[in-house]
Amino acid sequence: MNLFRLFGDMSHLASILILVHKIQTTRSCRGISFKTQALYVTVFVSRYLDLFYDWVSLYNFFMKVFFISSSCYILYLMKMKFRPTNDPSIDTFRIEYLLGPCAILALIFHYKFTVTEVLWSFSIFLESVAILPQLFMLQRTGEAETITTHYLAALGAYRAFYIPNWIYRYWTEDIVDPIAVTSGIVQTALYLDFFYVYFTKVLQGQKFELPA
């Protein structure tokens, strides 16, 4: 564990807490893509199967349990508790275009050809693009509540922190994880547009609005 990774994980944790807080306080999941949230559940469940057979650390264990349970809880909030506030008609990204290619990539690129390792690769590839339905929805509506943008910024920061973590681990431990690194760079790049608007508008006190 190094500071970059710790900051990354804490941003990830914060992003989820911000999202739950937004839904609870506004009593609405307006502006949140259900598809993206469902993809995150898929990501966590397919990646953290090692909870059952591999022990890393207490920290690792609790974080995994938290990510699986909180992402399922968010789906519950969106589909049950605040269902009327969820508008599927603007959440139109075709996720089969993400799931299919990620499955194929996982079959080609993995560290071992076992069910859990292929699922691990699949989860890494899927995570890198899971935010697309959300960004697509943002693009379509052209605006977002400020709290939603904080959620996205924390999620993007999590990915950004992992990059210096990998550089650090390369120098200090002489290990590199090519699958995680390449998809991590792709994932971070997807946030660049969003970050530009976030820094130039939201952090200056303006509303998040995309130029028409």
Partner: peptide, 10 residues
């Protein structure tokens, strides 16, 4: 460098 098969990252 070595690639790690042991997934210790989240």
């Amino acid at each position: 460098p070595e690639t790690h098969e042991h997934h210790d990252e989240l």
